[in-house]
Simulated assay, not measured.
Amino acid sequence: MILLVLSALTLAMAAGASMAWADEPAVTACSLPEGWTEIARRQPRYVVFGELHGTQQSPAFIGNLACALASRKQRVLVAIEQNARDNAVLQDAWRLPTARFGQALRLVGWNGRKDGIASEAMFGMVVHLHALKTTGLPIDIVAFNSDSAQEKHFPHLAGQGAHEAAQAENIHGATIRGRYDQVLVLVGNIHARRARHGEGAGSFDFMAARLAALGRVVTLNTRYAAGTAWNCLAKPGVTFTPGHPPPSDAIECGNHSVTSNSDLKRAPFIGLGAFPGEEPDTRYDGFFWLGPISGSPPLLPGE
């Protein structure tokens, strides 16, 4: 166990307390989760963590892992599912001192978003990582989610293939610009799938599969015990017209109950292969277990 300087926000998040970011860092500890050694033996270029958006536990898990790796002198890049068009502003903020970082970060992709990608816990993780960086630990960050302009570079790809390809391109581009020992990608678990979606002309590869063509990938699906997650879901009975955006009143964002068939009653850990008691899931190389989950609301409520 290695004592490190982390942000006060991270301490609040780990305790499940109400979120309130602070400029002054506090002292806490981080350690490698059980199972990481097996991941490291594979020497992956990218480790993709497919999460359920809107929990406190998933960003805390990645923040702890990045902390532990960087403490061992490994240069770490953490890739987050914020829009790549905001990445230049994020990099400018990343160079700021601790006292100015939190306010600058609020301008990068959080304002007005109601989903779990813009949660208090995600914000806390990034503040945490920046606090570690200011102490001298080798941690960088990149926003990699694609937008419609970038997706036009892939007109030959069907369905959401262009979106997936653009995500992979952004992560790979950031990777080759730095000399990283570990690249940790936190993304919705659909994008973390290895398996090709669909058949024939309408099929496409998810982001993790696109990354696998650029470097060795280990991709992990989130698993958890029952709890809650802050996300945006279709209201019961609502129907959608293919090819058209959903009506504004058809989506409900909030802290929703999440069920689970399992409770391992274990601390968070990583496992390769099948989840205990289940058949192998060929879409992923393994899983990361979070235990009971709790929802994290948006940092800045939408208008």
Rank of each mutant, 00 (worst) to 15 (best):
A213H: 12
R193S: 12
Q43Y: 04
G198E: 05
P25S: 01
T37H: 14
L6F: 13
A121I: 09
V127E: 15
T55N: 06
L4I: 07
K265Q: 11
H256W: 13
N145C: 11
V78T: 03
V142I: 05
L32R: 00
I117S: 12
Q167I: 10
E164V: 07
A149H: 12
S203Y: 05
R266M: 12
A121W: 11
C232N: 01
W21S: 07
S294W: 06
A99D: 07
I141G: 11
P276G: 13
A158I: 05
P297A: 11
M122C: 11
S257G: 13
T241I: 02
S203V: 04
T241W: 02
T219P: 02
C232Q: 04
D285L: 02
T228I: 11
L52T: 01
S58R: 06
A201Q: 15
G159Q: 10
D140T: 14
A195S: 11
I39E: 03
Y284D: 01
L52C: 05
V185F: 05
A225D: 00
A226K: 07
Q150P: 06
G178V: 04
R210T: 03
L52Q: 02
N261C: 06
G112I: 01
P246F: 01
L69H: 06
K152I: 12
E24P: 00
A192W: 03
D281R: 02
A15K: 13
V142A: 11
G273N: 03
F206M: 15
R194T: 09
R266V: 13
L272C: 00
M125E: 13
E24F: 02
N145F: 14
F240E: 02
L157Y: 15
R177G: 01
Q82V: 08
G173N: 00
A131Y: 09
L105E: 05
P33A: 09
T98P: 10
A209G: 01
W94C: 04
T135H: 08
L52G: 03
S18C: 13
N231F: 05
P59Q: 10
S119Y: 14
T228N: 10
P236C: 04
V126T: 10
G277M: 00
H163S: 08
D92N: 08
H53R: 04
L52S: 07
I2Y: 06
L233H: 00
T98H: 10
S18N: 15
A229P: 03
T228E: 13
E81A: 09
M122F: 11
M125N: 10
L107P: 02
V187F: 06
A14Q: 12
Q91H: 07
L32E: 13
A84W: 09
F240D: 08
K265I: 07
A15G: 09
G237M: 05
S119V: 12
E169H: 15
E303I: 08
Q43T: 09
R283N: 10
D249L: 13
T259L: 06
N87Q: 01
R106Q: 14
T175Q: 04
L157P: 08
L11A: 15
P25K: 00
A158R: 05
L90F: 01
A17I: 09
S31K: 14
H153E: 14
I251R: 12
E169A: 15
I171K: 06
L290H: 05
T37S: 14
L65W: 00
N111P: 04
G295E: 10
N111T: 09
G254P: 08
R210G: 03
N221D: 15
G198N: 00
